[in-house]
């Protein structure tokens, strides 16, 4: 069932521009969904697959977004073939640095320590940026130089959508390869019982640091695309608020599935768009959205995807047995 859902979601994303060609507002909405899906997916790799409770994914997202904005402003350079990899590098290195502090200590860190550590990192970065004039302080950076490829500049619309979708497809394929590999089996075991794995000879914290850094790269890519797409970045893009939103996207759709965060992001963003655009409830739509989120998280802990995919299928099999015999 899970591969069918994955195919259906990507097929829907491929045909969307053809169906909505004359609705720029909706193309922009779905582009945002795709970009934010990357952020939610980065959280899913941490929590859903590796048991790392990261409340700081927006830190990597936001810093990378600022970096591409500053490169555009100060160096007048925004070629995507260089700036998007740069954003991934920034996100990955920042996550690796945080991992050294939070995950690679002498003692095995608790989930609470990692959660508070990442949360504090995001909060501190938000406060730092909000008071730093060079990066626009509380006003952020606006009129970001357009993302370009050669002489072509990407504005909101189908072309930007195509770049974002290609990025999501590549990241999704790489993440799927990781979590279905023998290393994915280590992550699945680690999520259930870290101590047991250490007694097999696995250096569990190193695996966590690797996944955390990879997730940081994805969040960095997402942040760069978001800055280019919005034409703006500000302190809230690297704070706890957006970090928590990514957690909710993931849990709403179904953690530990890769496609769940994409579905969760789409469901919440589209629901927000529809509710905010409905005259009868325009005044109190956030309350309705909040109630929907609470109901799903409280009564459907495996998220929307849990309605269709069993726990057994979600975790899957890793051996050669089924493939060979």
């Amino acid at each position: 069932m899970l591969p069918v859902i994955e195919l259906a979601v990507f097929a829907a994303l491929v045909v969307t521009p053809f169906l909505l060609a004359d609705r720029t507002d909706l193309i922009t909405l779905v582009t945002n969904v795709i970009i934010l899906s990357l952020l939610a997916l980065s959280f899913d790799l941490c929590w859903g697959f590796s048991g790392i409770m990261s409340f700081g994914q927006a830190l990597f997202f936001g810093v990378a977004g600022y970096v591409v904005a500053l490169v555009g402003r100060d160096l007048e350079f925004s070629q995507l073939w260089a700036t998007l990899p740069l954003a991934m590098l920034v996100g990955g290195l920042l996550a690796a640095g945080l991992a050294v502090f939070l995950l690679l200590g002498k003692r095995t860190p608790s989930s609470i320590f990692v959660a508070f550590g990442t949360l504090t990192g995001a909060y501190a970065a938000e406060r730092l940026v909000a008071g730093w004039q060079y990066v626009g302080a509380g006003n952020g950076l606006s009129a970001i130089r357009l993302m370009a490829f050669g002489d072509y500049e990407f504005v909101e619309g189908v072309e930007f959508y195509a770049v974002a979708l290609a990025a999501l497809a590549l990241v999704y394929a790489a993440s799927r390869y990781l979590v279905r590999s023998q290393m994915g089996l280590v992550l699945a075991g680690m999520r259930q019982n870290e101590e047991r794995l250490a007694f097999f000879g696995y250096r569990v914290q190193v695996f966590k640091a690797l996944v955390f850094s990879f997730a940081g790269m994805i969040a960095g890519l997402s942040g760069a695309l978001y800055s280019y797409h919005q034409g703006f970045t500000g302190p809230s893009n690297l704070g706890p608020g957006l970090s928590t939103t990514a957690v909710i996207y993931c849990l709403f759709g179904g953690s530990g599935t890769l496609i769940g965060p994409v579905i969760g992001t789409a469901a919440i963003e589209v629901l927000s768009y529809v509710l905010a655009d409905t005259d009868a409830i325009r005044q109190f739509w956030p309350v309705i959205l909040g109630v929907v989120l609470l109901v799903v998280v409280a009564f459907q802990p495996s998220g929307l995807l849990g309605l269709l995919v069993s726990s057994r299928e979600r975790i899957g099999s890793y051996g050669a047995r089924k493939a060979v015999r």
Binding site: Q182, L197, G201, L210, S317, R321
Partner: peptide, 23 residues
Amino acid sequence: LTELSVYDNVLLALQSAEGYGAL
């Protein structure tokens, strides 16, 4: 590891000598 198959439990123990790249 109760959420993994019996097979995968043993595979997990067996593959512990593999390097990160090989995994």
